[in-house]
């Protein structure tokens, strides 16, 4: 890499950080300007999925390993923090770290047999591991089996992440989550791991011959990705106050976690946020307007949107702003 190219990357990364800080300030002010609980609630979900998908993107985007089992890590995070809270009284602000740790550890366990597989084989293997988690939790009475767990309200506090009027504090909790997930992605994108992942994604055989240790690289991406997802699960549990197997371990959730990154721009820093900002409102508003009486239309709109966007904008909506995927950029900057 030439000195000039390195300089360009440095400048670009500094600009990204500035844009990120500006956006953060904007999003801190935004919920104050929109007093409607409905819109604030929508913002909670957008930020949650932005963070989750940012986590998925580390493994699926930068490293190119398309996981369809991320609900496993989400569910582990949700159940870990909830059980620590309901059984041992440990506050969720601590429990969410335990959930993240378990999510990351589970991602390593799944990665160990699955990273030998490539492409669709890998995707299907992760899908099956996700369903194994779902099935086990559904049949495990100690964790509430199919009935799930209702989280009792203890006290209004930030330590317990419980609030009488829950929406506004969770706007900020999810904002912190999405911002941290973004920051992690920003950090790893510029790190040595980031370069390894892009090399693995582009051509794992060639990268191996260049000295990239493929398996450890994938495992590192899985751990970070699973941990971010686990923390998201813990936050979701506190926000909703109720968890059950389908809503935390379901296959459709694994797809929901991946979609914002795919639609927004896979392997990009801004793709997951942009994708969540487009997909989640479409989904929520169509459920609210069309889900009841004319059941199914909401799914038709959602599925149709995914299909059309994947087809006409395979590089993601972010490409509308002239931003390409990380791999594409690296090639250009090196040349």
């Amino acid at each position: 890499m030439t000195g000039a190219a390195a300089h360009t990357i440095e400048t670009r990364r500094r600009t990204q950080l500035l844009v990120g800080a500006g956006l953060l300030v904007g999003l801190i002010i935004l919920p104050v300007l929109i007093p409607s609980p409905y819109w604030r609630g929508l913002m909670v979900l957008v930020l949650l999925y932005a963070g989750l998908s940012q986590g998925w993107n580390v493994l699926g985007g930068y490293c190119g390993q398309i996981s369809l089992g991320h609900a496993l890590y989400f569910g582990l995070g949700a159940y870990t923090s909830t059980l620590l809270f309901t059984r041992l009284g440990i506050p969720p602000t601590i429990g969410l770290f335990a959930g993240g740790a378990l999510g990351g550890a589970a991602a390593l366990l799944v990665g160990w047999p699955c990273f030998r597989l490539s492409g669709h084989y890998y995707a299907i293997a992760t899908l099956v591991f996700g369903l194994i988690g779902l099935l086990l939790v559904e049949n495990w009475d100690w964790v509430g089996a199919a009935e799930g767990i209702t989280i009792p309200f203890r006290q209004q506090s930030w330590i317990d992440l419980q609030f009488r009027i829950a929406v506004l504090p969770f706007d900020y909790a999810m904002l912190a989550y999405a911002a941290l997930a973004w920051l992690v992605a920003w950090l790893v994108e510029g790190s040595r791991w980031g370069f390894y992942w892009r090399a693995v994604k582009d051509d794992s055989i060639a990268s191996r011959s260049l000295g990239v240790r493929v398996f450890p690289s994938k495992m590192a991406a899985a751990a970070i990705s699973g941990a971010i997802t686990g923390v998201g699960g813990a936050l979701y549990a506190q926000y909703i106050g109720f968890i059950d197997p389908p809503s935390t371990f379901g296959l459709s959730l694994s797809v929901l976690i991946a979609l914002p990154a795919v639609v927004g721009g896979v392997g990009t820093l801004w793709g997951p946020l942009l994708g969540a900002a487009v997909l989640i409102p479409v989904q929520q508003i169509s459920i609210a307007k069309l889900g009841g009486a004319a059941g199914g239309v909401d799914l038709m709109i959602y599925g149709g949107l995914i299909l059309v966007l994947a087809l006409v904008r395979p590089q993601g909506l972010i490409s509308l702003f002239g931003i390409r995927g990380a791999a594409g950029d690296a090639v250009v900057e090196n040349g």
């Binding site: 398309i66 369809l68 492409g119 669709h120 995707a123 797809v255 991946a258 979609l259 795919v262 896979v266 004319a294 059941g295 199914g296 239309v297 909401d298 799914l299 038709m300 709109i301 959602y302 599925g303 149709g304 949107l305 995914i306 299909l307 059309v308 994947a310 087809l311 395979p314 590089q315 995927g325 594409g328």
Partner: peptide
């Protein structure tokens, strides 16, 4: 599709599956 074609294929068929489930529910 030249970019991300593996991923595009996965999510196109996923989008289609969600669409078809919705269509069946609607009908």
């Amino acid at each position: 599709v030249r970019f991300n074609s593996g991923m595009v294929q996965i999510f196109i068929t996923f989008g289609l599956s969600i669409f078809l489930v919705g269509l069946a529910q609607f009908m």
